[in-house]
Design a protein around this nucleic acid. Structure first.
Length: 476
DNA sequence: TCTGGGGTCCTAGGACCC
DNA sequence: TCTGGGGTCCTAGGACCC
C-alpha cells in the first residue's frame, strides 16, 4: 500500500528502491495528436506536423520536426505563418473524435500488460509494475512500446520510477534522450542523482511557472536541489502540494495509482466563437448547444446537477472594453434533463447579457453533481414531470447513440449539425415531438445554410477514420 | 481577421453557530 | 464599559495539469 498523506510520513528519509516498494511506469504517446494523424496519413512521417486548438487558434501538438524548426507549444497560428510556409509544415485542425478513439485503443493495449493501470490523460497512463521487480524492467517496457506501436501505430516513451513524479521525470528524459530507445529507468539511486542534477525544477510535474519563480528566489533551480531542499520550507512556499513533490523526488510514494475513474465533480462546456457574436438570440443558441453536450456527459455518469452557471465574455486579447459576467441558478431537485437545462440556461443568460458588446465566448458549468437516483423532491416539485423528463432523455440518448449525435435535439439548438464546422456548412432540420418536448431532427443529407457565427472554425480537419462509417479509409 | 477547452486540488477568509 | 473562542461550512481565487 502507498501512503497517501505525505504529512504522516517521516520526512527527510531517503527510502531505497527495495523489492517491496512500488514501481510506476508512465507510458506517454509521442506528439500524440500528430501521431494519430500520421497513422492515417503516412506521407506525414518525417515531416513537420502540427495540430491546432479549437478555432484553429494555436499549436497544441507538434512533431519533433516541427519542434526543431522552432514552433512552440501554444504558439498562435497567425504568428507563425512564415515558418509554416517556409518549412512546408503540415497543419491540422484538431479531431477529438479520432484522438479519443485512438486513445481508447492504446489503453486497451496497455491493459494487456497489467491490470493495474491508471488512465491519466488522453495520451498517458501510469502502470504499476509492482510484481515485476525481478524482471528486467527496461526490457519489459520495450516490449510494451513495441506492442503499442504494432497494434495502434502510436509511438510512445516510457519512464520507470519508484514514484509517479520520478516516473514522469524518467519519461521526459526518455523522450529527449535519443539513445534511450524510448525507455528510461530511474529506480536506481545513482541514476536519480545524475538525472535530477540536470533536470530543471520548473520541469518537475506539479511545478508551474509561479512555483518555479518562488523556488528560484530561494535558490532552487534544479530538481536535485528541490529534492534536497528543506521540506518544511518548501511546504511553506508551495503548500502541501510542494511537500509531496519533494517527498516523491526522494523516492517516497505519496501519489497512489488511481485505477477507478471517479465521477466528474463539475462539467464545463464552453467555446470561443469562430466570429464575433452580438445578439442574444445567437448566444442563446450557442448556450443551448453547450448545455446539450454537458447534459449528455452528466447522464453518462448517471448524475444530476443542482447548480448551473452561465458566463459570457469578450475577447481578452483585443484592445477595447472588456466584459465578463456570470450568473447561477440552483435546482431544488437535481436534473439531468437537457430540456430543463436549456430553459434554465437561457434564463440566466438573459440576466447577464448586455447589449452592444462583442462577445467572444460563452459557457455553461454544471456543478454540485450528485447521484441521479438519489434526487430529493420538495412538496412543490413536480415528480411526475421529473419522471417524464428522464424518459424523454433516455429516448433521445438511445436514438442519438444509434443514429449519430444530434440526430435528435432540442429546437433551441438551431440547425447546426455536430461535427460540422463554420466552414463545412450545416444540415436541414425538422421539428419532431418526443415525450412532450419539442425536438429538432437533423436530416442526414446536407442542404447548405450559412453556419452561425458562434460555431467553431476547423478548416483543416481530417475525416473521422475510426468513428464514422462514411469516413472509413479506402484502400486500393 | 487571427491567441483552446476541460478538469482538479488547496487555502484563506467570511458567515454562522454554540 | 466590558465584548471569547472554537468549530464547521461555503466560496473565491490561485495554481497546476494535459
Amino acid at each position: 500500500m502507498h501512503e497517501r498523506d505525505p504529512q504522516s510520513q517521516v520526512s527527510g528519509a531517503h527510502s531505497p528502491c527495495v523489492a517491496s516498494a512500488p514501481i510506476f511506469a508512465l507510458v506517454d504517446g509521442n506528439s500524440f495528436y500528430c501521431s494519430c494523424e500520421r497513422v492515417f496519413n503516412p506521407s506525414l512521417i518525417n515531416q513537420p506536423v502540427i495540430v491546432l486548438s479549437n478555432n484553429d487558434g494555436c499549436v497544441i501538438s507538434r512533431t519533433d520536426e516541427a519542434k526543431a524548426i522552432g514552433i512552440k507549444m501554444g504558439d498562435p497560428l497567425h504568428l507563425i505563418g512564415d515558418m509554416i510556409k517556409r518549412h512546408r509544415v503540415r497543419v491540422y485542425s484538431s479531431n477529438y473524435a479520432l484522438y479519443g478513439d485512438m486513445s481508447a485503443r492504446m489503453m486497451t493495449t496497455l491493459a494487456q500488460f497489467t491490470p493495474e493501470l491508471e488512465v491519466y490523460s488522453i495520451d498517458e497512463a501510469f502502470l504499476s509494475l509492482d510484481g515485476f521487480a525481478n524482471r528486467d524492467l527496461v526490457d519489459y517496457a520495450r516490449e510494451i512500446r513495441r506492442v503499442v506501436r504494432r497494434d495502434t501505430g502510436i509511438p510512445t516513451a516510457i519512464g520507470i520510477g519508484p514514484t509517479k513524479v520520478l516516473a514522469k521525470v524518467a519519461n521526459r528524459a526518455a523522450k529527449k534522450n535519443k539513445t534511450s530507445g524510448g525507455v528510461l529507468n530511474l529506480c536506481d539511486r545513482a541514476a536519480q542523482d545524475s538525472m535530477l542534477a540536470e533536470f530543471a525544477a520548473a520541469d518537475v510535474w506539479g511545478i508551474g511557472a509561479r512555483s518555479a519563480a518562488k523556488l528560484a528566489r530561494m535558490g532552487v533551480t534544479t530538481a536535485l536541489q528541490l529534492r534536497d531542499a528543506d521540506v518544511d520550507a518548501v511546504q511553506k512556499l508551495l503548500t502541501i502540494v510542494g511537500r509531496r513533490i519533494v517527498l516523491e523526488l526522494r523516492g517516497q510514494s505519496c501519489l497512489a495509482l488511481e485505477m477507478v475513474q471517479e465521477d466528474r465533480k463539475q462539467i464545463v462546456s464552453s467555446k470561443s466563437f469562430g466570429r464575433p457574436v452580438y445578439k442574444l438570440t445567437e448566444l442563446k443558441e450557442a448556450v443551448a448547444n453547450y448545455a446539450t453536450r454537458a447534459c449528455e456527459k452528466l447522464r453518462r455518469q448517471k448524475s444530476a446537477c443542482h447548480v448551473l452557471s452561465v458566463f459570457v465574455q469578450t475577447n481578452r486579447f483585443k484592445d477595447g472594453p472588456q466584459y465578463y459576467n456570470s450568473g447561477t441558478i440552483t435546482f431544488g431537485a437535481g436534473t439531468a434533463s437537457t430540456v430543463r437545462m436549456i430553459a434554465a440556461a437561457s434564463g440566466v443568460l438573459e440576466t447577464i447579457f448586455r447589449d452592444g458588446i462583442e462577445y467572444k465566448k460563452v459557457g455553461v458549468i454544471l456543478s454540485d453533481l450528485r447521484l441521479a437516483s438519489a434526487v430529493e423532491f420538495s412538496l412543490f416539485d413536480d415528480q411526475h414531470k421529473h419522471a417524464q423528463d428522464i424518459k424523454t432523455m433516455s429516448v433521445m440518448d438511445a436514438i442519438n447513440a444509434r443514429m449519430g449525435r444530434d440526430t435528435l435535439k432540442v429546437g433551441a439548438c438551431g440547425n447546426v449539425r455536430a461535427g460540422t464546422s463554420a466552414n463545412a456548412g450545416a444540415n436541414g432540420v425538422a421539428n419532431v415531438k418526443v415525450g412532450g418536448a419539442r425536438m429538432a431532427q437533423a436530416r442526414a443529407a446536407g442542404q447548405s445554410a450559412p453556419a452561425p457565427a458562434w460555431t467553431m472554425k476547423a478548416a483543416m480537419r481530417t475525416p473521422c477514420y475510426t468513428t464514422r462509417w462514411q469516413d472509413l479509409l479506402k484502400v486500393g
